[in-house]
């Protein structure tokens, strides 16, 4: 089965649980104390989708959103973005629009957008009605789901939904775009004889 690497970037205010969602998805683990943001360039998890394997490379903001200083390179080449808000904090929902705008400005044009209302285990102190969030998501053609990283609710589902929305791979021979990563191994040189 072909493995496809898909970059997913996380957006949303500080403290809404972005890292917790990744940690739950990748490690099936939830921890208040250890911050996976430290030292992790991105986390990976591979899930099957149809006759492909989707290897998610999930990029966290690394705290750069805290003082509104996310770098444009953060969005480069993302197949999908997950914008997270906290259902118990109205503020974090109100800033969604700002993140959507930011994504439109810096993100790739064909990016799949998902909106995740996290901490739905804390329904008793909910400030954001699900209906309202869902309507907003529909208005921008985004995936919508409420999650709980703490109780492992809808985390797998979130990424499954993203997987399904990723358009199937076009002709793999898009020759004009043969960019590569620098690794310790010499890259297979695309030397052509003229």
């Amino acid at each position: 089965m072909a493995i496809r690497e898909l970059k997913v970037c996380l957006l949303g205010d500080t403290g809404v649980g972005k890292s917790s969602i990744v940690c739950r998805f990748v490690q099936d683990h939830f921890d208040h104390n250890i911050s996976p943001t430290i030292g992790a360039s991105f986390l990976t998890k591979t899930v099957p989708c149809g006759n492909e394997l989707h290897k998610f490379l999930i990029w966290d903001t690394a705290g750069q959103e805290r003082f509104h200083s996310l770098a444009p390179m953060y969005y480069r080449g993302s197949a999908a973005a997950v914008i997270v808000y906290d259902i118990t904090k109205l503020d974090s929902f109100q800033t969604l629009k700002k993140w959507v705008k930011e994504l439109k400005e810096h993100g790739p044009e064909d990016i799949v957008v998902a909106i995740a209302g996290n901490k739905n285990d804390l329904g008793d102190i909910r400030e954001v009605p699900m209906k309202e969030a869902k309507e907003f998501a529909e208005s921008i053609a985004a995936i919508f789901i409420e999650t709980s990283a703490r109780n492992a609710v809808n985390i797998e589902e979130l990424f499954q939904k993203i997987s399904k929305q990723i358009p199937p791979l076009e002709n793999p021979e898009v020759e004009s775009n043969e960019s590569f990563k620098l690794t310790r191994q010499p890259a297979p040189s695309a030397r052509r004889c003229c």
């Binding site: 649980g17 490690q27 208040h32 104390n33 250890i34 911050s35 805290r66």
Partner: peptide, 25 residues
């Protein structure tokens, strides 16, 4: 990314403190 190991010593869950703030480790 694959080499980062999370130790499993989870402390008791105490609410919604999933902050991204951190100190270098």
């Amino acid at each position: 990314p694959e080499d980062i190991i999370y130790d499993g010593e989870t402390t008791a869950a105490t609410g919604d403190t999933q902050e991204e703030e951190q100190s270098p480790q």
